[in-house]
């Protein structure tokens, strides 16, 4: 049995030390994913909190044959983020991404030029359609394999590659516009 399976079995058995180990190992990774998807630190932390609550209550549902713990947690967080985005959309604020994207915390330590660049990048990524944005973040930033990312998004690997290519093409065209 792998270390990961032992950890999950211990969580199923109600051992809080195993839960703490999972938090230490994946907490920031999951929060970073939610932050990149939602563009807001407070919401990202809420998503991370809910994701780990689900880890505690639903650990028995994790199936090692269907992917590692990281991919499973990403999937939970992804679904929570999508719910969040739908709520935003219902409140009709999604269109105005500038009001949602909170780049201040991440950019606090950067210089002015770097800060502007960071904010612009966040806005461009935030402007991508949700599926393309998720695919790009999962593969480029979160380091998931193509199969894991496809599982998180519940699509085939071919469909994932199509989402990635479209996302990168859109960003590349923005990048070349800004260079001119």
């Amino acid at each position: 049995m792998s270390i990961e399976e032992q950890m999950m079995q211990a969580i199923v058995a109600g051992r809080q030390d195993a839960y703490a180990r999972a938090v230490h190992q994946y907490g920031r990774l999951i929060a970073a994913y939610a932050y990149r998807l939602l563009g807001n630190q407070a919401e990202a932390e809420d998503v991370a909190q809910e994701t780990f609550l689900k880890l505690w209550t639903q650990a028995a549902r994790w199936d090692p044959a269907r992917g590692n713990v990281s991919a499973w947690l990403h999937r939970i967080a992804h679904n929570l983020c999508v719910d969040n985005l739908r709520k935003r959309s219902a409140l009709a604020i999604d269109a105005d991404l500038d009001s949602v994207i909170d780049t201040g915390a991440a950019a606090a330590d950067l210089g002015l030029a770097a800060q502007r660049q960071h904010e612009r990048l966040q806005q461009l990524i935030g402007g991508l359609p949700e599926r393309q944005r998720s695919a790009l973040i999962l593969v480029h930033y979160q380091g998931l394999s193509n199969q894991q990312a496809a599982d998180v998004l519940d699509v085939s690997v071919d469909a994932l590659e199509s989402l990635l290519a479209r996302a990168r093409r859109a960003l590349k065209s923005q990048m070349s516009v800004e260079d001119k």
Partner: peptide, 19 residues
């Protein structure tokens, strides 16, 4: 390389909050 300029917050205190 351009994409890699994107940073995320440090999430200080997140681990304590989750625990």
């Amino acid at each position: 390389s351009w994409l890699s300029d994107s940073q995320t917050p440090a999430f200080a205190g997140l681990e304590a909050r989750l625990l």
